Amino acid sequence: MIFTSLASYGHLYPLLPLAVAARDAGHEVVFATAADFHPTLDKAGLEPAAAGISIQQAFREAFAGDPRARDEVSEEELNPIIGRAFGRTMPERFMRDLAPLIDQRRPDLVVYELANPGGLFAAHAAGVPAMCHGFGRVTVGGEAGAVIREPVAAFGAELGIAGDADFAWGRPFVDMCPPSVQDPEFLAGARRVPVRPVGWSEPGDLPPGVAGRDRGRPLVYLTLGTTPMSQAHLLSSAVQGLATLEADVLVATGPSVDVAALGEVPPNVRLAAWVPQSELLPHVDLVVHHGGSGTTMGAFAAGVPQLVLPQGADQFSNAEAVTAVGAGNQLLGDEVTTEAVRDHALRLLTDTAVRDVVRKLADEAAAMPSPADVAATLPQYA
């Protein structure tokens, strides 16, 4: 089997539990992505193969010769660039790189990540069955996703792939989103293969004192994910608000924030560049985050309330899903102030109705088939 995803934490990590389970079930598994993430695949015990380019490289190519920073480009100019990068540049490159790998290894099945349709396109060209693997909630026909969905659908049509791109062209879809928070239209129209939202983190120890701490004092986890964007100002506002609570605050600063930019923090706040998030979430009482799918799904599975501060992409629809089901709140744009973060966090730490909702979500996630269960069924899709 060949698994393939974009070279990004939020796109690659969700596929790792199933890829590892498939390997453990005795299948020969190759995971194809850009070389930047091959060390991650080595740590997971998976055979890496080189394919595609990173999202950052795709945008560097798109902006070649343009002296402006990305945040200086208007939305009207940026949207077509995003569409080309995700809808043409990266799929074409993955399709080209996967063709010789498929020819050499002759897989029975290609499992491609939702944002990497180049995996499907290469499998289609080679006459190999393919199935899609999601990374969170799917929004059918959403306005925000149209900028990518339309060029991807057009590319698929050029290749003679029949069906609706919104539903993975009728291919089986490994869906890790609990049904109660999934898009109802997607639930009704997709060939879903449910899988429990099991997180994956690179091996590492929890911060000292987390595992055996006194649960009488709340632990708040703050993260804005791994996307390379300037987040220090947002983190600072959130830290200042959370620090005033009678709680301990653990902040994962991520790869794009200079810890020094946050200045001196109060004694109840601890900063870490990285934490094993999937292992951490069951120990926390509130997650304050950007709305990335990995953190959103992980909090659902762990039964943790969420305060979402969405910044872009699917983060807004994730935040809306969290609030719609009663699992937390969201703050948008200028709403993100020190006072608002404090007030919303305090309410979520004490609201028993929210606690009831997140417990039900955790039970729902736990009842979904495990990656090992799904791995046992993969031959039927070949």
Rank of each mutant, 00 (worst) to 15 (best):
D175Y: 03
P179H: 05
A154R: 14
R149G: 07
L187W: 09
R191E: 14
P172H: 03
G189N: 15
A153I: 09
C132K: 01
L120V: 03
D166Q: 15
P194L: 14
L120Q: 05
G136I: 09
V140F: 05
R149V: 11
G136E: 11
F155Q: 06
G163H: 08
R171G: 01
E150S: 12
R191G: 06
G145F: 14
A146N: 12
V138P: 00
R191V: 13
S180R: 15
A165T: 02
D175Q: 10
R191N: 14
G141R: 04
P178I: 11
E185K: 13
G142I: 10
A126S: 04
V193W: 03
D164V: 10
V181G: 08
F121W: 08
H133T: 01
A190D: 03
L159T: 09
E185V: 15
F173P: 01
P179E: 06
V181P: 10
E158I: 02
V138Y: 08
L120A: 06
D175I: 04
H124I: 00
F135N: 08
A168E: 13
A157G: 10
L120P: 00
E185W: 08
C177M: 15
V174F: 02
G145A: 13
V152T: 14
R191D: 14
A162F: 00
G156A: 02
A146C: 09
P179Q: 11
R192E: 06
F186Y: 15
W169Y: 15
A144H: 11
F186P: 01
Q182C: 09
F186D: 02
G136C: 11
G136K: 12
P151N: 10
P184T: 05
R149K: 14
V174C: 03
V181C: 12
G145S: 14
A165K: 02
A153Y: 09
A153W: 09
E150N: 14
F173E: 07
A125K: 05
T139W: 08
P172V: 03
G163C: 08
E143K: 15
P178N: 12
M176R: 13
A146S: 15
G136T: 11
E143T: 14
R191M: 12
V147K: 15
F167L: 15
M176F: 07
A123Y: 00
G127P: 01
V140L: 05
E185M: 10
P172T: 04
G145P: 03
A165N: 07
M176K: 11
M176I: 15
G142P: 01
L159Q: 08
A153R: 13
V128D: 00
F135D: 05
F135G: 05
G156R: 00
I148V: 15
R171Y: 04
A162H: 09
A125F: 00
